[in-house]
Amino acid sequence: DETGKFLVLSLYDYQEKSPREVTMKKGDILTLLNSTNKDWWKVEVNGRQGFVPAAYVKFL
């Protein structure tokens, strides 16, 4: 199980638009929880879990 094993870097600021999403700032290091959807990845940032656009992050 690779859940929570990968870190990704936020390339852009992102403001959550729904309760299922999370806000991140450019340069944030996020824990990747799920990347099965090619468009939206589930991450943990600042103690919160939610989705961010996959195009806004990259693997470290």
Rank of each mutant, 00 (worst) to 15 (best):
L33H: 05
K38I: 08
G50H: 01
T23K: 03
D1E: 13
L9Q: 12
K5T: 12
R20F: 15
V45A: 10
S18N: 12
R20D: 13
F6H: 14
F59P: 13
W40E: 03
P53G: 03
V43P: 00
K58W: 08
E16G: 15
K17F: 05
E44W: 05
K58F: 09
Q49W: 07
Q49N: 06
L9I: 15
R48L: 07
K42H: 11
W40S: 01
K5Y: 13
V45F: 13
G47L: 03
T36Q: 12
S18Y: 06
S18R: 08
K17M: 12
A54P: 03
V52L: 05
L60I: 14
Y12T: 11
L7S: 07
V43S: 00
P19F: 10
L11C: 11
T3Q: 13
T23M: 04
I29K: 06
D1N: 14
V22S: 01
V22P: 00
G27N: 06
K25P: 01
K5G: 11
T36S: 14
D1C: 15
F6D: 10
K58P: 02
G4S: 13
D28S: 07
N34C: 13
S35R: 12
Q49P: 06
K5A: 11
G47P: 00
K5I: 13
Q15W: 12
G4R: 14
G47W: 02
E21Q: 10
N34K: 06
K58C: 15
K42L: 15
T31L: 15
G4V: 14
Q15K: 12
W41A: 04
E16W: 05
Y56K: 08
F51R: 02
K17H: 08
M24K: 01
R20Y: 14
V57W: 02
E21C: 07
G47R: 04
L9E: 13
K26E: 07
Q49H: 08
Y14N: 02
K26P: 04
F51M: 08
W40T: 01
I29M: 07
Y12A: 13
L32A: 03
D39F: 15
R20S: 13
Y12Q: 14
K26A: 13
K5Q: 12
D13I: 03
N37W: 07
L33Y: 03
V45K: 10
L33I: 15
W40G: 00
D13A: 06
K38T: 09
K58Y: 10
V43K: 00
M24E: 00
E2V: 14
K17Q: 13
E16A: 15
K42A: 08
A55T: 11
D28T: 07
K26Q: 10
L9T: 09
G27C: 07
F51C: 12
T31Q: 11
V43M: 01
S10E: 02
G27Y: 04
S35K: 11
L9P: 00
R20L: 14
L11Q: 06
V57I: 10
A54C: 06
D1Y: 13
V43R: 00
V22A: 05
V8A: 08
V57H: 00
Y56I: 07
N46A: 10
E21D: 06
V8L: 15
V57C: 09
I29T: 06
V22I: 15
N34L: 08
S18A: 08
D1L: 14
F6L: 14
P53W: 05
G47Q: 05
L7P: 03
L9C: 11
G27R: 02
E2D: 13
D28A: 07
G27T: 01
T36I: 09
D39Q: 10
A54I: 04
L30F: 05
W40F: 07
T36Y: 10
D13F: 05
V52S: 01
R48G: 04
T3N: 13
T36D: 15
A54E: 02
F59I: 15
W40D: 00
P53K: 04
K25D: 03
E21F: 06
T31E: 09
D1M: 14
E21V: 05
T3W: 13
Q15E: 15
A54D: 01
D39C: 13
Q49F: 08
A54G: 04
T3F: 13
K5L: 12
V22K: 01
E21S: 06
K17G: 08
N37P: 04
Y14P: 03
K26H: 06
M24Q: 01
G27A: 02
K38C: 11
K42V: 14
G4I: 13
S18Q: 08
P53C: 06
W41G: 00
G4T: 14
N37D: 15
K25R: 12
L9R: 08
S10R: 04
Y12S: 11
K17N: 10
A54W: 02
E21H: 06
L7Q: 10
L33G: 00
D13L: 03
D1K: 13
W41T: 03
P19C: 10
Y14L: 02
L7E: 07
P53R: 04
M24H: 01
Y56C: 14
E21Y: 06
Q15G: 07
E2G: 14
W40H: 02
N37K: 06
L60Y: 11
T3D: 13
K25L: 08
G50Q: 01
Q49I: 15
T36C: 15
V52C: 03
V8K: 01
T23A: 07
K58T: 15
F59V: 15
L9K: 09
V43G: 00
L32P: 00
L33S: 02
S10P: 03
V57Q: 00
M24W: 01
L33A: 02
N37M: 08
G50P: 00
Y14F: 08
G47A: 04
T3R: 13
V52T: 01
K26V: 08
E21G: 12
L30R: 00
L60G: 04
R48D: 04
P53Y: 04
D1Q: 14
K38P: 15
L30W: 02
G50Y: 04
E44D: 09
W41P: 01
D39W: 14
N37A: 08
I29D: 00
G4W: 12
R20H: 14
E2K: 15
W40N: 01
D1G: 14
A55P: 07
L11S: 04
K17C: 10
G47M: 05
K25G: 05
K42Y: 15
L9A: 05
R48I: 09
L30Y: 08
E16P: 15
L30G: 08
D1T: 14
V43I: 08
P19L: 09
L7N: 06
L60K: 04
E44M: 08
V8I: 09
K42R: 10
